[in-house]
């Protein structure tokens, strides 16, 4: 299969009977869901329900944790990324990830944003353009454009997190996974990041893990509610947040969760 257009009308990313276990413990239990194109799906649920495990299994980051076993399929453009012939490095170049804490590398702002492009030996001229584009889309360009050679570690936490988003965006992934990207940020930075996500979702698949129902309501189109490794309910954000079918979901969104 070549080219990267969606296969027929199928989704860019879908999960098919995904089960993740660790030493006999089931972290995710038979999960199936589609992530719609050009939209943001929020994954919500109480602490320890498997949100991080779910997004990490979407680009084979689960492999970096010894002892985790994955069954089932994650299909990217119709290709199961867990097939033996698939190279996880290439998967992660198409399905980017942003973590809970900012994770900039100890070099310049420019080099951080250019990281993924250097990995594929992109031409210098194209890197310049892509870095500028990515920093702009991440909402950081105006703040850093005068000194791209500054050490990235000298930025504020919120700026560092936006730099991490720029780093992920620079390689033009079709999917971006965000695991509680605002949980370490102040309200101002959080708001900026939410605005950035709203722009980004017009052109890619965004998966946002959040424990904050308000944030899901503000930025997401669809919500998936997880509980103890089960997908309890998934649907349009309005549907799920205003008329949840499952009592567990109801308890969670009204904040009456243990």
């Amino acid at each position: 299969m070549s080219g990267e257009g969606p296969v027929g009308n199928g989704p860019i990313l879908s999960v098919d009977h995904l089960t993740v276990t660790a030493k006999g413990k089931t972290l995710l239990d038979d999960i199936s869901l589609d992530f719609a194109s050009n939209s943001l799906t929020a994954v919500v649920g109480p602490s320890g329900c498997g949100k991080t495990t779910l997004v990490r299994s979407l680009n084979r980051m689960t492999e970096l944790t010894p002892g985790l076993r994955v069954k089932g399929a994650v299909n990217y453009l119709g290709q199961n990324i867990y097939d033996r012939s698939v190279n996880p490095v290439l998967v992660r170049r198409r399905i980017g990830m942003v973590f809970q804490r900012p994770t900039v590398f100890p070099n310049s702002i420019y080099e951080n944003a250019a990281f993924g492009l250097r990995l594929v030996h992109e031409e210098e001229g194209k890197i310049d353009i892509a870095v500028r584009h990515a920093l702009t889309r991440a909402g950081l360009w105006d703040e850093v454009k005068d000194d791209l050679e500054r050490p990235a570690l000298s930025l504020s936490g919120g700026q560092q997190q936006r730099l991490c988003i720029a780093r992920a965006l620079a390689v033009r992934p079709r999917v971006l996974l965000l695991d509680e990207p605002t949980s370490a940020l102040d309200p101002g930075s959080t708001q900026r990041l939410e605005e950035t996500m709203e722009h980004l979702k017009e052109e890619m698949v965004l998966v946002l893990v959040t424990h904050n129902v308000g944030q899901a309501a503000r930025v997401s189109d669809r919500v998936a509610f997880l509980h103890t490794g089960h997908l309890v309910e998934m649907g349009e954000t309005e549907e799920i947040l205003e008329r949840p079918k499952d009592p567990l979901t109801q308890q969670f969104i009204t904040g009456r969760f243990p």
Partner: peptide, 24 residues
């Protein structure tokens, strides 16, 4: 988290070692 960020952004293990790990 630095290691995961490098690998999660598409670095092969050898690229992580040479470009991120060694300088640190």
């Amino acid at each position: 988290h630095i290691r995961e960020a490098a690998l999660g952004n598409g670095a092969a293990p050898s690229q992580y070692i040479l470009r991120v790990g060694l300088p640190i």
